[in-house]
């Protein structure tokens, strides 16, 4: 069960890599498994690889859902 948190691509790098913004932290990832990624796209990451491109609307909805989760912190039931 790994959460599909969208991250934004902020820069394309050489060698099929890109820089993404993960909650304010910049990180280099691989684009080897997905095609047609541009700066500004949202992607889902798994262990350093982008595995899915999201359209902006989808990304907004997903981020809103995770923001809601963040407030409740997914607490264990009482």
């Amino acid at each position: 069960m790994c959460l599909a948190i969208p991250v934004k691509v902020v820069e394309l790098l050489d060698g099929d890599e890109a820089t993404v913004d993960v909650g304010g932290v910049r990180k280099a990832i691989s684009l080897a498994l997905v095609d047609g990624i541009a700066v500004g796209d949202y992607v889902i990451l798994h262990v350093g690889y982008a595995i899915q491109k999201l359209d902006p609307e989808e990304a907004e909805k997903t981020l809103a859902l995770f923001a809601e989760l963040g407030e409740n912190l997914g607490a264990a039931p009482a």
Partner: peptide, 14 residues
């Protein structure tokens, strides 16, 4: 948890 980059709200991490 970390600060959400856009909203400033706390976001959950994987």
């Amino acid at each position: 948890i970390h600060e959400g980059s856009r909203s400033g709200k706390k976001m959950i991490a994987e």
